[in-house]
Design a protein around this nucleic acid. Sequence first.
DNA 1: CTCAGCTCCTGCGGGC
DNA 2: TGCCCGCAGGAGCTGA
Length: 287
Amino acid sequence: MPELPEVETVRRGLVPAMEGAVIARAEVRREGLRWPFPAGLTERLEGARVRHLRRRSKYILADLDTGETMLMHLGMSGRMTVSGLAAPHVPGRFHNDHPALEKHDHVIWHMGNGARIAFNDPRRFGALDLRASTVIDAHPLLAALGPEPLGNAFGPQVLAAAFRGRRAPVKALLLDQRIVAGLGNIYVCEALFRAGIHPARAAGRIGAARLERLAQAIRAVLAEAIEAGGSSLRDYRQADGNLGYFQHNFRVYDREGAPCVAPGCHGTVRRIVQSGRSTYYCPACQR
DNA sequence: CTCAGCTCCTGCGGGC
DNA sequence: TGCCCGCAGGAGCTGA
């Protein structure tokens, strides 16, 4: 469940279990996910204290007191499950009282505070790496990322510069993490709808006023989704076991054939395929 | 450089 | 019930 809002929700769910806590033991149940795990992973993690959990784009970064930073990516199907956190208000829940591990629980962190975190990823498109904190920004997966859409460096000027002269569909460029980092298929569709821009429009042929709307729409949809705890498709749960509920606020995504929700619009949501992926939009109000 | 297509992998739901 | 197909929230790599 991995676009920026979901990753941010996962990060927040991990904070109580991981931040400030020691990794008593790391358990690795296969050689790697998308790529092999780094050499000596379990030894390098054992005894390390997590100083800070942060997020860059769709990556979660754990700064350790060993001088290394652990990088995690959830891929398409990754999730984190926390158990064993002290929950005095929940009768029957205690430290070190963990449910059975599940199929596809590939990495498990056993924390000194009694919490257990399981990284589950059926499709194994996820990633986990470890590298000196001083050079983590230069990690090949992070180095080329564009600005954070909710940060100060992002705005219509970023889109204008990146789109200039480009003939590719605007949807494809918004999915390019080098231009703006953190969007995925859902939130690109939702942002384009809010901005009234047709997903197949050549990116370089969008005027300044509409880029302003688009940048604003991107920020708004991401902020609202974070507020809602992300989107939970196919019953995926967040790290704290709760479901996000932004999926109920989708205006076009996965709504093929449904009436457009824009006031006064009588259009019908359509699904097309762009570079192999579904795009949802309203042909009546997106131009 | 730009762009489209393929690829990795498992699981689920729909149609027959 | 079982089988086959398409599809799924990502993104790196290849080749035109």
